[in-house]
Structures are given as structure tokens and as C-alpha cells.
Design a protein around this nucleic acid. Structure first.
Length: 336
DNA sequence: CCCATTTGACCACC
DNA sequence: GGTGGTCAAATGGG
């Protein structure tokens, strides 16, 4: 197997090189795009994020597609026809990157990537999912965790779908899925759990990559706090608030994030119907319903900033990254 | 009325 | 059988 993998890699070497080169070029273009608007993106989120974000996103899409393809090739997945196009990738690493340093500065995070031998293919398992709870335990999907003293924002819209008391844990674990699970078949999910009280530490575990197209704009990012009743304060670029009556268990918050996002193509709109109801309202594309959980997912929304920390796209990538990354205050750490 | 959250039920995995 | 992950009806806010 090792040998066949190696042979496969070698035989695809040209393709790998092409993908990497393309990725590099696209990244360069993206850099210029962001560079042109750096000041806007970094300090002026309030303004609404900017018209070039769209083109930037397009570039990001291509870049991600390029890297994803490379990874797939390296993983020997190509034969399975799993190479994806940039459009399919888009958000890939939901942990994608602390989008913005402003929300992130206060947090020192540790990110670990776990379980990287994943099958990128979707779980075919629950084919006949008519019954509740009938699901396939995500054993094969890769995950990565982030521990933060506060909840961090992210550029994706999440919807809470469950909460569970975990054995031997003081705090319940909250389950979120991507809002676009149904309309765009985005499989990304995450779990958030407070693992320490004082100081508070929240562990966010991401599963799967985002394949959805819509990201919150920078101006929509919310930074919220943590503990249920204590310090939840969320920040909107431009103003800071402090209050929060909510959080029953540390969760649910009302969507404070005002901003509206341009609607996604109306065409796919309905597919989203969440099970029984048609949840396709624009709201779904707007906010991150739970401020409580934040983490930064994908930077593409608009702030480029720095990172795209996690390479979770694939196993290979993860294995290539050995050194920890240091960003400003935070430390991103990869483990295998 | 629409939509997000809550919460108990259900089921896969260990 | 216990635990954890997901589903979906119920609930409540806007």
C-alpha cells in the first residue's frame, strides 16, 4: 500500500505541481486584492466589508480547490474521482482561520488536529435516515480542536442542533452544524464545550470542512464570550456591547449580529428546507446564531488576515506541518 | 408566521 | 449497557 501510494504520488507529480503552482499564483492574486483593501478590511469592518470581497472569495475558492486537489492526489484519492473543484471547496477548513485578529487577540488558542486519516468522502452511512438519532458516528472524519478562554467568532453561520450532558463533564456540550447543511450540503459541524471554569476554557471541535459558499462578512463577525452568565460580551466591529441575558446553558443567544448578507443564489434556496420546514429564509445566511461559540473558521470572509491556520484539508497537509504557528498572541499548534 | 433554539428520543459505537 | 451524536417535535422570540 505504501508503495502504491508512492507510485500514485509520483505518477501524479505533474498534476500536483500544477495545482501547487496555481495555488501559489492565486494566493498571490488574493494577497494583492487584500492588500489593496487592507485598511478597509482591517479597520473598517463596520463599513460593510467591501465590494471586492466577492472577487477575493472567488480567488480563495480557487486556491482552496487547488490545494484540495493536491491533497487528494497526494492521498491517492484521485482515482476515486473525488477531486473537487474550487467551487465545492470554498470553506473547507471551518477552522480556517482566525479570521480576524481583532477578535482573536485576546485569545490564546491551541489548535490540535486530530484524527487525520479521514475519508474525504461523505459518510454514506445513514442512507435511510428516517428516524431520529439514526446516524453514523463520525469516526472517520477528521477533526481539530481549539481551546480558548473565550468563545471566538467565525465567519460561518452555525445552527445549534443539540446539547448534551457529557459524562464527567461539568458543562454540557453543544452541537452545531453549518447553516448551509441542507441548502448547500455543507457537512461542517462543530462541538463546543466549556472544559474549565476558572479561568474559563472552551473547547471547540470541528468536524468536516465547509463546502458552503456563504460567509459572513467581516462586519458580521461576532465575538462573544463565554460563560453563560458571566462575561458574555460580544463585539461588533464598531461597537462593543455587554449584556446578555441569554445563555441558558451557555448557549443560545439571539442573533445580535445585524448585518445582512446578500442573499445566496435564490436557485438553491429551497433545498435547504430543513427537514420538515423550509428554512430558507435569508436569515440563514446572515448570522451566526450562536455567538457563544466562536471560533474562527474561515478567514475568507473578508479578513484575510493571517491565517488559514489549519490545514485540515487533508492528512497530508497536516503531516507536513510540524512547526507551530505563531500569530500575534495566539499559538496554533498542530499535532497528529 | 417564520425561524432558531430547546430538549427528549433514538441509535451507533465502545 | 453506557455514552455520545443526531434528529425532530415543541417552544418561544421577533
Amino acid at each position: 500500500m505504501e508503495l502504491s501510494w508512492l507510485e500514485s504520488v509520483l505518477s501524479n507529480r505533474e498534476r500536483v505541481m500544477e495545482e501547487l503552482i496555481q495555488g501559489r499564483e492565486l494566493a498571490g492574486q488574493l494577497y494583492r486584492v487584500f492588500d489593496d483593501h487592507k485598511s478597509t478590511l482591517v479597520s473598517g469592518f463596520a463599513g460593510g466589508g467591501g465590494g471586492d470581497v466577492g472577487s477575493a472569495e472567488g480567488l480563495v475558492t480557487k486556491i482552496l480547490g487547488s490545494f484540495a486537489n493536491t491533497l487528494l492526489i497526494l492521498n491517492g484519492k484521485e482515482a476515486d474521482g473525488e477531486i473537487v473543484s474550487g467551487d465545492q471547496i470554498q470553506g473547507n477548513s471551518s477552522g480556517g482561520g482566525s479570521a480576524d485578529s481583532s477578535s482573536w487577540d485576546a485569545n490564546h488558542a491551541i489548535i490540535k488536529s486530530e484524527d487525520f486519516h479521514e475519508e474525504i468522502s461523505c459518510k454514506s452511512a445513514s442512507t435511510f435516515k428516517d428516524r431520529r438519532g439514526s446516524y453514523k458516528r463520525r469516526k472517520t472524519s477528521h477533526s481539530w480542536t481549539r481551546d480558548t478562554p473565550t468563545l471566538i467568532e467565525d465567519s460561518h453561520a452555525w445552527r445549534k442542533y443539540g446539547q448534551k450532558v457529557i459524562h464527567n463533564a461539568k458543562h454540557p456540550r453543544n452541537y452545531f452544524r453549518c447553516t448551509h447543511k441542507f441548502d448547500q450540503s455543507c457537512q461542517a459541524t462543530k462541538h463546543v464545550q466549556q472544559i474549565l471554569d476558572d479561568p474559563p476554557v472552551f473547547r471547540t471541535t470541528y468536524y468536516g470542512n465547509h463546502t458552503c459558499r456563504d460567509y459572513l462578512k467581516a462586519s458580521e463577525l461576532v465575538l462573544d464570550c463565554t460563560s453563560p452568565r458571566e462575561s458574555s460580551s460580544y463585539i461588533r466591529f464598531g461597537d462593543i456591547k455587554q449584556d446578555h441575558p441569554f445563555f441558558s446553558s451557555f448557549t443560545s443567544v439571539k442573533k445580535e449580529v445585524v448585518i445582512k448578507e446578500e442573499k445566496p443564489q435564490p436557485s438553491d434556496d429551497h433545498m435547504m428546507a430543513s427537514h420538515h420546514r423550509n428554512h430558507s429564509s435569508s436569515c440563514d445566511y446572515i448570522v451566526s446564531p450562536n455567538p457563544m461559540v466562536f471560533e474562527s473558521s474561515c478567514p475568507m470572509s473578508g479578513l484575510s488576515s493571517t491565517i488559514d491556520p489549519y490545514g485540515h484539508q487533508g492528512d497530508v497537509m497536516s503531516s507536513l506541518i510540524v512547526e507551530p504557528y505563531y500569530f500575534d498572541d495566539e499559538v496554533l499548534q498542530y499535532e497528529f
